[in-house]
């Protein structure tokens, strides 16, 4: 087994373990910390696929900014000791069965897909993931979507302030 294969299986196992622990943890703070582990594992997969720009952006945006925002909100609400009441066991069982059936169907479709069985993803080679190539395409072919994105951010910023601002609650 080469180092790449070992790294692939290690990162996959880490991502799956982290995703399971996000579900299982009773304390929301631990869920956030396990989700950061998942993001680090996925960034490792991006590095393995030589998508270095996406790996760094994933770390900065997701693990750096979004997860800090989640932690901040959890601490602000003082939720870290508040576990949700354990009722509706049938709802949990039904949800698990529904998600498991979905996974079985997708894996069955994948096993039947003869087209995909010979394809491989290029590992550790190819330079399309480098920031030079991505930036050239982004600012030439995708300039309009990029600019629209800034408008989206502005509207999200204004929306977050308007929603979160302490005003007169309408039904109190």
């Amino acid at each position: 087994m080469s180092t790449t294969v070992i790294l692939f299986w290690f990162l996959s196992a880490l991502a799956l373990l982290g995703a399971m622990m996000v579900l299982i943890s009773k304390n929301p703070v631990f869920s956030v910390l396990w989700l950061i582990v998942v993001f680090f594992a996925i960034s490792g997969h991006y590095l393995l696929l030589n998508a270095q720009f996406l790996a760094i952006v994933n770390l900065i945006v997701y693990a750096g900014a979004i997860m800090v925002l989640f932690l901040f909100v959890i601490m602000l609400m003082n939720l870290n000791s508040n576990t949700e009441p354990q009722k509706n066991t049938w709802l949990k069982v039904a949800g698990a069965i529904a998600g498991g059936s979905f996974m079985l169907i997708m894996i069955d479709v994948l096993i039947d897909a003869k087209d995909m069985q010979t394809k491989t993803a290029l590992i550790k080679e190819g330079n399309i993931g480098l920031i030079k190539n991505l930036g050239r395409v982004l600012y030439n072919d995708y300039l309009i979507p990029f600019e629209i994105t800034s408008v989206l951010f502005l509207s999200a910023m204004v929306g977050a302030v308007v929603i979160g601002k302490k005003g007169e609650a309408p039904n109190q």
Partner: peptide
């Protein structure tokens, strides 16, 4: 690395999210 492994990993992660 076969593409099937990546699809399998993504499907399982997605389904864990759905169950959650």
């Amino acid at each position: 690395m076969p593409i099937e492994y990546y699809i399998m990993l993504s499907v399982v992660l997605f389904c864990i999210g759905v169950v959650g």
